[in-house]
Computed example of a mutant assay.
Amino acid sequence: MTIDFNHLEEVKIDGFKGGKGELCMRSFADEKCRIMHGVLRPGASSGLHCHSENSEILYVLSGAATFYCDGEQEIVRPGQVHYCPMGHSHYMENNETEDLVYLAIVPEHH
């Protein structure tokens, strides 16, 4: 199966999961997995959330993401992956001057 993000509707979300600023997202989902291409604008963030029934793998394509996972801070740059295991909490910020572009995969574990 090929997922072409260029043919999926872009959704603009202000304050994703209680965060601040704008996130533009194109996503595919079925009962087993959610796959998203996101663009988080400079100064924007997601809200803190727990992955109680799934995990998240986030691959940075361009820009840089500052993640806070279980209270620990890390900066993830292009070519690097942030992993939030099931049962853990995290959020991200774009503290840079350019867009943060990423691919996120959220497999369901139930």
Rank of each mutant, 00 (worst) to 15 (best):
Thr66Ser: 09
Met92Cys: 02
Asp4Phe: 11
Gly71Leu: 09
Gly19His: 14
Ser62Arg: 15
Leu61Phe: 02
Cys24Ile: 11
Ile57Thr: 05
His7Asn: 15
Met36Leu: 12
His37Met: 10
Gln73Lys: 14
Leu8Tyr: 10
Tyr102Thr: 04
Asn54His: 14
Ser52Ala: 14
Cys24Ala: 13
Glu56Tyr: 05
Ile105Phe: 07
Ser89His: 14
Leu58Gly: 03
Gly87Leu: 07
Asp4Ala: 09
Tyr91Asn: 10
His110Ser: 10
Ser45Thr: 01
Met92Gln: 08
Ser52Thr: 15
His109Ser: 09
Leu100Cys: 05
Gly47Val: 10
Ala44Gly: 07
Ser27Lys: 02
Gly38Trp: 10
Gly43His: 07
His88Arg: 12
Ala64Asn: 11
Val81Ala: 05
Thr97Tyr: 07
Cys24Asp: 06
Ser89Leu: 04
Thr2Glu: 07
Met36Lys: 13
Glu98Tyr: 04
Val106Met: 11
Phe5Val: 00
Phe16Val: 09
Val39His: 06
Ser45Glu: 04
Ala64Thr: 09
Ser55Cys: 14
Leu100His: 02
Phe28Arg: 13
Ile57Gly: 03
Tyr68Met: 08
Gly47Ile: 09
Cys50Thr: 14
Asn95Glu: 07
Glu72Asn: 08
Glu53Pro: 07
Gly19Pro: 09
Glu31Pro: 00
Ala44His: 01
Glu31Gln: 12
Val60Ser: 01
Ser52Gly: 10
Ser45Val: 01
Gly21Val: 07
Glu22Asp: 06
Phe5Cys: 10
Met1Leu: 09
Phe28Leu: 08
Met36Glu: 14
Asn94Met: 04
His51Trp: 12
Ile75Cys: 11
Tyr68Glu: 08
Val106Trp: 08
Val39Asn: 13
Gln80Glu: 15
Ile35Ala: 07
Met92Ala: 05
Ala64Trp: 04
Met1Phe: 14
His90Cys: 06
His51Met: 10
Ser27Glu: 09
Ala104Ser: 15
Ile105Ala: 11
Thr2Asp: 08
Tyr102Cys: 05
Asn6Ile: 02
Arg26Ser: 01
Gly19Ser: 02
Gly38Cys: 00
Arg34Lys: 15
Phe67Gln: 01
His109Pro: 01
Cys33Asn: 06
Leu100Trp: 06
Glu74Lys: 14
Val81Arg: 02
Ala64Phe: 04
Gln73Trp: 03
Glu98Val: 13
Glu98Lys: 12
Met86Glu: 04
Glu93Cys: 06
His51Val: 04
Asn94Gln: 03
His110Cys: 09
Cys50Trp: 04
Asp4Val: 07
Leu61Asn: 05
Glu72Gln: 13
Glu22Met: 13
Cys50Phe: 02
Val101Lys: 13
Ser55Leu: 13
Glu72Gly: 02
Gly18Glu: 11
Ser55Gln: 15
Gly71Ala: 11
Ser55Val: 02
Arg77Asp: 03
Pro85Met: 11
Gln80Arg: 15
Ile57Asp: 14
Met25Phe: 11
Cys50Asp: 14
His110Met: 10
Tyr91Phe: 14
His110Asp: 14
Arg26Cys: 00
His82Lys: 12
Val106Ile: 15
Tyr68Gln: 04
Lys17Pro: 00
Glu9Ile: 13
Phe67Arg: 01
Met86Leu: 03
His51Ala: 06
Cys33Trp: 01
